[in-house]
Design a protein around this nucleic acid. Sequence first.
DNA 1: GGAGTTTTGAAGTGTTTGGTTCAAAACCTG
DNA 2: CAGGTTTTGAACCAAACACTTCAAAACTCC
Lengths: 190, 190
Amino acid sequence: MARPRSFDEDRAIDAAMRAFWAHGYQATSTQDLCRATGLNPSSFYNTFHGKRELFLRALRRYLEEMSAVQAEVLEARAPVRQKVATVLEQVIDDEAGDRLGCFAINTSLELAPRDPEIAGLLARDYDRRMAVFRTVFALARAEGQIPADRDPGELAHFVNATVAGIRVVAQSGADRTALEAIARSALRLF
Amino acid sequence: MARPRSFDEDRAIDAAMRAFWAHGYQATSTQDLCRATGLNPSSFYNTFHGKRELFLRALRRYLEEMSAVQAEVLEARAPVRQKVATVLEQVIDDEAGDRLGCFAINTSLELAPRDPEIAGLLARDYDRRMAVFRTVFALARAEGQIPADRDPGELAHFVNATVAGIRVVAQSGADRTALEAIARSALRLF
DNA sequence: GGAGTTTTGAAGTGTTTGGTTCAAAACCTG
DNA sequence: CAGGTTTTGAACCAAACACTTCAAAACTCC
């Protein structure tokens, strides 16, 4: 039919995701995006219809990938305590490593307050992650791995908040031992 | 000697702080700041020497005010558990109220990764808050209010992370009951 | 009240922003 | 190879950006 594209759309979205992730939405100019993806402006607008659209696609991809990773750990066959420990460990490795932080959290704070569509996206993701936590904890409690007086929903919110807390204080200058101390404390509930 | 100012410098910093707090650094233009403070550009640059300088002054003020409020609660004469509960309650009221979030956390994520001076400011503030927590917890443990196997420093990092976690998930769409669940779980350690 | 100093308002600086235009080049199908 | 379609690059756009300039206005002090 016609001339084929000289670039891979998925690869471009990944590059854009990294750019947005590292610098945020506002601090990433369309020029930055063109440089990161290797596209020129006209190809850029042809395929992604603007900065915001591309951001949404990048964010959606990030949320899906992260949810998948977390769900994989949580739905494995292992003691809950160990599964939660693994989730927290992964977060700590993440933050102690590249120091990029979490794209979802960054976006929650930068854009959610004044962009209802993005706020909705993040809220739905929050609920989805919460549901995984809750069912895993409910099952564990039924098996006696968690004291009967603990509420699965409450624990779900708590673990999620602990993950967020670790990520944020890591950006505020906390070192690895501090992050591990946080995880150790949180694990006392399991 | 000369013509006096027609505005109050402190009041202007407060107005700027609210603007930066609500919209972040990048999304707050100098025009926005002029509107918020009531100054015109030339007075603005005369007294504050640019957007960044004003931001630093606003941030410093915020950190001092917040540290003072938190220290006041923690250094009161009351059971630790109750003091920690009060700190968490305050955060929840804050987040469930105006939904502005925390200026320090917003800044940690927006600017700290690529602005060493701001990162240093936040890191020092983190250490200062941590020191207050630690001494309060150490004292409480000595008095037998906290089990002897708990490390004060570890608890300090943990409570601080819980505060951050509550603030972040509040921005991700969590409602008040979720925030209270997080606080309730965290308080089990005390 | 006049000298001296500072603030103030309006207009304007160059640069960067997100986004567009359009003709030429590249490709597939027939 | 020719027809039809899409991508591509370079140049271009208006608006917004942080910031400056400068003369006039406002004030204090002597």
